[in-house]
Each structure stands twice: as C-alpha cells, then as structure tokens.
C-alpha cells in the first residue's frame, strides 16, 4: 500500500514514461541494469515496474548511502527492499556478489547500476565486473538493459532540490553472456546495449 503510493508519486513527480522497447514486463527472473546519474534512478526504475513485478524486484544499492539517518534505511528496507552492498572495500566475508546472489534466490529480480556510482558525464562510465559475475553464475537469468533519460537533470549529483523536468526510461532487448565471451567484451557489449537505447529517448 505505502510502496504503491511511493511508486505512484515517484512516477508522477518525474513525469516518467516507461517504454518496453525490447521486451515486455515479465515475471521471470531478470537483472535490470541501467546508467546511473541521479539518486532518483534506482527508486524510479523500481517504481516504473508494474506492481506484480515490483514486489519481486530488489534494488541493489550502496550501503554507505542508504544506511544514513532514519528515513533512508526505512525506505531501503521496507519500500525498495534494497540489497545493500559494500562498494568501497569488499572483503572475503562481505563480498557483494554473494549478497546479490543470495538476494535473488529463486524468484527475485535485481536492479543494478554497473557503473558503480553516479556520474555527471554525458556518457556512462565503464561497467564494473559485478554484472559479468552475476551473468556467469546465473546464466539462465535475463539481463535487461535500461536507459534512464533526464534524471540527472531532475536531480543531479550534489543537488538537494529537484527541477521538475520530465524523465523517461526505455527497457531494451535482454542480453546473455555468450559462450566463451571474455569479461572485457561482455562488459563493453552490456554498456553499449544501454547506450543504444538513448537514441530512442531523444
């Protein structure tokens, strides 16, 4: 109920239009990966999923950001059911990969931002290896590229007050790790699959 309201108001506030370009909404297990330029990205991607998908989709987010204060941890836990990972210093006993695999289990999907942080550059940064390892460990899961347009103009990095522009997001054609594909090739291809969707927005 509350999360439905939050999802609705997020969509309203960002005026976001979600376009399922390369695939339709589906209950099967998926990893949605997107470009990252604003704190709104994760919450909005989550909010743009239809309700039945939303309850089974968990947002992978930075522990150092979402554990500050009172509201953020509550939002992370009760609303987005976030999977909080340590992005600064992964150690053997808190490896983000294990946390993510565990959070997926058999019926959950994930939302991840493989750039590893927010950036104000027009082009997405090179992807970090997490997506590759997830693809290798769970080859049956669909990897859905998502382009998030304009959110860095609505709430750029380092700003607290938003400008009420219209955002939009595009869901692309799912990709999989190919037989014998190297880590570098796969990550480059994944990044390209996100960038390709940008042209649909503009």
């Amino acid at each position: 109920m509350i999360s439905g309201l939050i999802a609705g108001s997020l969509r309203l506030a960002t005026g976001a239009l979600a376009r399922w370009q390369g695939c339709g909404p589906d209950l099967r297990q998926r990893i949605y990966f997107a470009n990252h330029s604003s704190n709104l990205d994760g919450p909005l991607l989550w909010a743009s999923l239809p309700a039945p998908l939303r309850v089974r989709t968990r947002l992978v987010a930075a522990h150092d950001y979402w554990s500050v204060g009172k509201i953020r941890p509550w939002m992370a836990q009760s609303v987005f059911r976030a999977v909080l990972i340590e992005r600064k210093r992964p150690t053997a006993d808190c490896n983000p990969l294990d946390t993510m695999l565990q959070a997926m289990g058999d019926d959950h999907s994930l939302i991840i931002f493989p750039e590893g942080g927010r950036h104000n550059d027009p082009e997405p940064q090179p992807f970090k290896a997490g997506l590759f390892h997830l693809a290798r460990r769970r080859p049956e899961v669909e990897l859905v590229p998502v382009w998030m347009e304009n959110l860095n103009r609505i709430l750029p990095k380092g700003e607290i007050l938003p400008a009420p522009l219209l955002g939009s997001l595009v869901f692309g054609t799912p990709i999989r790790l190919e037989e014998g594909e190297t880590k570098i090739d796969f990550l480059a291809r994944a990044r390209q699959s996100v960038i390709c969707l940008r042209d649909i927005c503009r």
């Binding site: 005026g15 103009r153 400008a163």
Partner: peptide, 22 residues
C-alpha cells in the same frame, strides 16, 4: 516542464530552473 525538458540545459542551470519553476 515540457518546454525545458526538450531544451538542452546544463548542470549550471539547475538552481536557476528551480527558481523558475517553484
């Protein structure tokens, strides 16, 4: 909102836009 969305502004305009809208 529609007008500014279609108009490329830069990060330096962010606070100006906040004033303009709100």
């Amino acid at each position: 909102r529609e007008f500014i969305t279609l108009t490329p502004t830069r990060p330096g305009d962010h606070r100006t836009l906040f004033w303009v809208f709100f």
